[in-house]
């Protein structure tokens, strides 16, 4: 690449380019300024604040004045009696969620794809998007209504032999209700991407398959699925990157002391320790641990996919 002899002219060239660039585009940089300021304040300043995970942070002393404690906060988390429970709950909700909420939108899109009547297809699609526009607070409110003693879901469960009372306050039901209501809310919306991928499959491929004598099922297997495979893989990688990313918003609306055993996840613990208990350093350390695991999983999944499939998100 570059050696000492070429470094100097390059550098000079760079300052010249810089001058020219600013002369030509200063207005552009002026327009970018508010955006830079915004992201700097609300996204990058908090990233810098992660330093407090390695401190015994006190709000009066600030980031610079607080005592540095190394990995003490992380250590406290790893030996905490909650560590394994939080890790288990986070992973189980995430993995069970993935098992259902990843394939079902694909199956839904495939079913819709088989519908010949355009109007019917349109109506089904529109109805399927409805839950997406409803707030989490409302979704959880309806869940409480259905899950109370005598609510719809409790009644159905009782019919099938359940005798534990209101399902909404039962630890055994937490994951089912959480994942089920997520599925209800996002199935239609998550299928959009697959529906558009299906529409992009080359129609001449179907024709060729038909000439070869393939029936609908064989066409689905050998034309449709390979046609949307790369979309599926990319989305799967992205989902894997969120394997520890069970959000707190819905969990903290849904859970309670009676459901902590299965419902408390790392994110909700970050919220409880950080916002409710004001244990800032500890909460930040727990959150950092969570984000790092996510990133490692994302990079690993992407790496494996690139090796095996030559499909990558980068």
């Amino acid at each position: 690449m570059s050696s000492f002899s070429t470094a100097k002219p390059l550098k000079k060239k760079f300052t010249e380019r810089l001058k020219k660039d600013f002369k030509n585009h200063w207005q552009m940089y002026l327009l970018a300024l508010p955006v830079i300021a915004y992201f700097f304040i609300f996204n990058y300043a908090p990233m810098f604040g992660i330093v407090m995970a390695f401190e015994k942070f006190q709000i009066k002393k600030g980031i610079f004045g607080s005592r540095f404690v190394g990995f003490e906060n992380f250590h406290r988390f790893f030996i905490s009696p909650f560590f394994w429970r939080l890790l288990r709950n986070t992973l189980l909700i995430s993995i069970y969620g993935l098992l259902f909420s990843f394939p079902l939108p694909i199956i839904f899109a495939l079913c819709l794809n088989e519908v010949r009547n355009r109007k019917f297809k349109k109506v089904v699609q529109t109805v399927s998007y409805l839950p997406y526009f409803i707030s989490v607070v409302v979704v959880v409110s309806i869940l409480f209504d259905f899950g109370k003693a005598n609510g719809l879901i409790t009644n159905i469960a009782t019919f099938f032999g359940w005798d534990g009372g209101a399902v909404i306050s039962s630890a055994k039901w937490f994951r089912t209700l959480y994942i089920g209501s997520n599925l209800w809310q996002h199935l239609g919306y998550n299928s959009i991407i697959f529906i558009s991928a299906l529409a992009a499959v080359d129609p001449t491929l179907y024709e060729a398959a038909r000439i070869d004598g393939a029936n609908r099922w064989q066409q689905t297997l050998h034309v449709t699925l390979p046609g949307i495979a790369s979309t599926i893989i990319v989305l799967l990688i992205l989902r894997l990157g969120q394997i520890m990313g069970v959000g707190y918003e819905k969990i903290i609306l849904m859970y309670g002391p009676s459901t902590y055993e299965t419902g408390d996840v790392i994110a909700s613990y970050v919220y409880r320790t950080g916002i409710l208990d004001a244990d800032y350093s500890y909460s930040t350390a727990v959150n950092l641990f969570n984000s790092l695991v996510n990133m490692v999983v994302l990079f690993t999944a992407n790496f494996i996919s690139r090796k095996v499939n030559e499909t990558s998100i980068w």
Partner: peptide, 15 residues
């Protein structure tokens, strides 16, 4: 980059 990584709940709250 703000899509991939963020400071998290507490640092954002403190800002």
């Amino acid at each position: 980059f703000t899509m991939i990584f963020n400071g998290g709940l507490v640092p954002t709250f403190l800002v």
